[in-house]
Simulated assay, not measured.
Amino acid sequence: MTVVEEVAGQAGALQPRQLIVTLYGLYAREHGSWLSVAAVVRLMADLGVEESAVRSSISRLKRRGLLDSRRVDGVAGYALTEVAEEILADGDARIFGRRRADEADGWLLVVFSVPESERDRRHQLRSQLTRLGFGTVAPGVWVAPDHLADEAAEVLGRRGLAGYVEFFRGAHLALGEVPDTVARWWDLDHLHARYAEFLDRQEPVRERRAADDGAAPEQAFADYVRLLTDWRGLPYADPGLPLHLLPADWNGARAADLFADLSGRLTGPAHDHARRLIGA
């Protein structure tokens, strides 16, 4: 697993290290990107994670270059590294601000060529394009909705990969049905299944919140951290294609609406609870 994948999150059961990354992304950056070990242990206890698992996960995140040990006023703790802060900042825009393309946007084509002697850079480039939401047209030819152009240029430039790529804008002059072509460029079945799993896990949370909107702050906190950890990998996998190019039973929009609804309900009480625990 790459550092970016560690931060973005993967499908499946939520791991303590993923929950810790979410905690740092949500709450540490307003405290100088640092949290004391004691605060992390308290926060994770409300998520049902024991202290031994917390310390083990922090050690792993430190080895991955995402956290650095640091004492503040004599208190032991860990701070986000520059790499982690950069990835989390990218994630903020992707998770909370990314829009869906419409038909008028057109397409962005990326063509790249990497010498055989730099195969590691080729792997990095493919990983970055996948994370940005590009689909594969042919070896060395990737496509995405055009509204991703600025983000792609900025991210590839920052990673030192811009020199390997050429960008083109244009329309798709299809000889067949565009939705059929799109389904060859992206694995929409897999993404549909991931959205279905998200809906299965989070719909019961909405039902519970609707039945008892005055739930304890610690429950709102736990629900919100799990919600964001569960969600944050999906915007990296979804290219944000226009809805008319997607299958009729597409569930991504419904999942996005559910995420927005629960976020609106949970953000405030979760933040208040976290702030109390961090300051304890």
Rank of each mutant, 00 (worst) to 15 (best):
T2D: 14
Q10K: 06
G12Q: 14
A13H: 09
Q15D: 10
I20D: 05
R29C: 01
R29F: 05
S33E: 01
V41F: 01
A45T: 08
G48E: 08
V49T: 08
E50I: 12
S52I: 15
R60M: 14
R60N: 09
L61T: 10
K62A: 15
K62R: 12
R63P: 05
L66E: 03
D68W: 12
G77F: 03
G77P: 08
T81P: 11
I87N: 02
D90W: 11
G91K: 03
G91P: 03
D105R: 00
L108N: 01
L109W: 01
V114A: 05
S117E: 10
E118V: 08
R119M: 09
R119F: 15
R122V: 13
L129W: 07
T130Q: 14
F134Y: 09
W142H: 11
V143N: 00
P145K: 02
H147S: 08
A149H: 07
D150V: 10
E154Y: 07
V155Q: 11
L156M: 13
G157F: 11
R158G: 11
Y164I: 01
Y164S: 06
Y164N: 13
L173W: 14
A174N: 14
G176S: 06
P179L: 09
P179C: 06
D180Y: 02
V182W: 00
R184K: 13
D187P: 13
L188F: 03
D189C: 04
H190I: 07
E197P: 07
F198A: 01
D200Y: 08
R206A: 06
E218F: 03
A220Q: 11
F221H: 03
R226I: 03
L227M: 01
L228T: 10
P239Y: 07
L245R: 01
A248T: 12
D249M: 08
G252Q: 03
R254L: 05
R254H: 10
A256T: 11
D257G: 05
D261I: 00
L262P: 02
S263E: 10
G268A: 12
A270E: 02
H271M: 05
D272G: 02
D272F: 04
R275C: 12
R275D: 12
I278G: 04
A280R: 11
